[in-house]
């Protein structure tokens, strides 16, 4: 399967980066064709500028300057996101990738009444994320806020796309054993993709 693995963490020697590397290695070992997109390493610019905003809703012209990013998204059959959750969501770097690349004519078609998904080639979605907060804050108090955004994107994929959500809570105080166990969980999950 062709897999696009997208990563956003500023520190190359971080645990977050280790999760990304484990994910990519496991997928490659499983025979998948992996496109590893490390947004920080590639110097992605997450803020959509004025010119781009003006043509953002015009399919065709809105692709200008983003052709390589769009091609990587359009050809993939599975999407794996690896990022730390900061505040109540993905880092600006990753949010900007969605803002800029998941545009009309690429991720969906928009007419007056309906939104038609276009990324229907994608049949698997895996999210791997870490939180500073404990489980109950994220899932009860925050009401799984971050998952709501991803649920929105999920609607633009294949109708039967399966989704897996892997989360490590309380990262700042997590023991080495907890970190290793989570790495192992990531490997196991992606070995089954």
């Amino acid at each position: 399967m062709r897999v696009l693995a997208v990563h956003a963490h500023p520190v190359p020697e971080s645990y977050g980066r280790a999760l990304f590397e484990a994910a990519v290695e496991t997928l490659r070992a499983g025979g998948h064709e992996v496109d590893a997109l490390d947004l920080y390493a590639e110097g992605f610019a997450p803020a959509m500028d004025a010119d781009e905003r003006r043509r953002h809703n015009v399919p065709g012209p809105n692709r200008r300057g983003l052709e390589p990013d769009i091609a990587r998204l359009e050809r993939t059959e599975a999407l794996v996101l690896v990022y730390p959750t900061w505040w109540f969501g993905m880092p600006a770097m990753l949010k900007g990738w969605f803002d800029r690349v998941w545009m009309p004519g690429v991720a969906f078609d928009l007419d007056a009444e309906t939104i038609t998904p276009r990324l229907t080639r994608i049949r698997k979605l895996t999210v791997i994320t870490t939180y500073g907060s404990p489980w109950w804050v994220v899932n009860l108090w925050l009401m799984r806020a971050d998952r709501r955004i991803v649920a929105g994107f999920r609607r633009l994929l294949h109708p039967n796309c399966t989704q897996e959500w892997l989360a490590l809570y309380r990262l700042d105080t997590a023991t080495d054993a907890a970190r290793s166990a989570f790495l192992e969980r990531v490997r196991r999950s992606l070995a089954r993709l």
């Binding site: 505040w87 993905m90 600006a92």
Partner: peptide, 18 residues
């Protein structure tokens, strides 16, 4: 509201200033 959320530039303001 872009892509179901805050524009990246506003999320980044929170990421860096908060």
């Amino acid at each position: 509201v872009w892509s179901f959320g805050l524009p990246a530039i506003l999320k980044g303001w929170m990421d860096r200033v908060f």
